[in-house]
Design a binder for these strands. Structure first.
Lengths: 204, 204
DNA sequence: ACTTGTTTTAATCATTTGATTAAATAATTT
DNA sequence: AAATTATTTAATCAAATGATTAAAACAAGT
């Protein structure tokens, strides 16, 4: 714990070594996503990053500023996939649904904590992040909604969207609970999630 | 340990005054449900209850003990409705689904914060609450699952349950988000939730 | 009224926690 | 190499926060 990487603080040319700033960010991603803003201690992040606590404030000024950066990343992860798929005017409605479900489940398998983290933090600061999300128009004027209204005029697009998202995202939000009551191991549960990539489009 | 509250200690003039213990609990229900355990300050609860901070510790010993009591209530609210409906052997599968969706949405309209609160707290202490939930058997050996396997042998019951719960619960978890992107007011959003009581059974 | 037991308050404690400071160390420039 | 700038550390601060204590206020029984 005395001396290890004293020489090469910046690691400009090095490949496998992360910069201090990136180490902090990487640690912050993990700890924030796992515990949320309120339950996270900056000391936890510092320890996870393997750096001094003061360094965190040197690079990011405050816990809140560090969090805001991470949150922006998470929001983009959470919403990024949706836009391009839903606004694409050259694909059919069926294709959009298949693509969305498939890509989204892939992403959620890699980030199972993402939905509950994002939705929790949005709830505690509803207006603070509403601006960061420009997906408002994505609902009112996307190709997806247009196609839906034309093909199924009797269905309210909002109801359809709620069901699509619910079926896709909820199994990840309730994962700790569902794993307990079904006594499934991680791999089996994961396989079930892969199944849903085909099942959800089929049901809709 | 257990304090026997005598007859109305206070409440001299007023008629419908709550006991101090109940005032604290009522405040704790509100604040915990709104902000979660980590973000809640015991001083907030005390202020909301209109009592001295020390009283909170006098009645409940600690923040954690107060929380555990509230959490148990919330878990029962969250799961209580499901058991009786799903294990009832005298109702059809369709009736079970209709009853569940209808009663559950009614309950969620009264407690919109409940799902995200319960699921968040379960996630942060997965094993601490797993014992408090005896719904494990509810999945493996309920009338609901039996009927489902018989009627739709090709469908995995877990997938069906995930979709049912997802369609029912997710709109409440994502409410702050969905209200923003659709720019709907509270009443309209609420009306949509009522719609779903009929729509979800229809889709399944 | 006096005693007894309970409830409530004000003051305070001990830790935790986010943040800062001043000095040491390394890297870069001149 | 010397000077300058950037990075890192140890030590510490100030505020927030959960919890406790000692005493006051209150109700009920005698």
């Amino acid at each position: 714990m005395t001396k290890e990487k004293k020489q090469m603080a910046k690691a400009t040319g090095a490949e496998n070594e992360l910069s201090t700033e990136e180490k902090i960010k990487a640690a912050a991603r993990i700890v924030f996503a796992q515990k949320g803003f309120a339950a996270t201690r900056t000391r936890d992040i510092a320890e996870t990053a393997g750096i001094n606590l003061a360094l965190l404030n040197y690079y990011f000024r405050s816990k809140q500023k560090l969090f805001d950066g991470i949150m922006l990343e998470k929001l983009q992860e959470f919403f990024g996939k949706v836009g391009p798929i839903f606004t694409n005017t050259t694909t059919t409605l069926e294709t959009k649904i298949e693509l969305f479900v498939s890509h989204y489940i892939d992403m959620l398998i890699k980030n199972p904590d993402l939905p509950i983290f994002v939705l929790s933090e949005i709830r505690t600061h509803p207006q603070h992040f509403s601006q960061a999300i420009q997906i408002r128009g994505l609902f009112t004027q996307s190709s997806f909604i247009e196609q839906l209204k034309e093909r199924r005029p009797e269905i309210d697009p909002l109801h359809f969207l709620m069901s699509l998202l619910g079926m896709t995202v909820f199994p990840f939000i309730a994962m700790p609970l569902l794993k307990t009551i079904t006594s499934l191991d991680d791999d089996t549960y994961l396989a079930k999630m892969m199944d849903r990539k085909k099942l959800i489009p089929m049901w809709l």
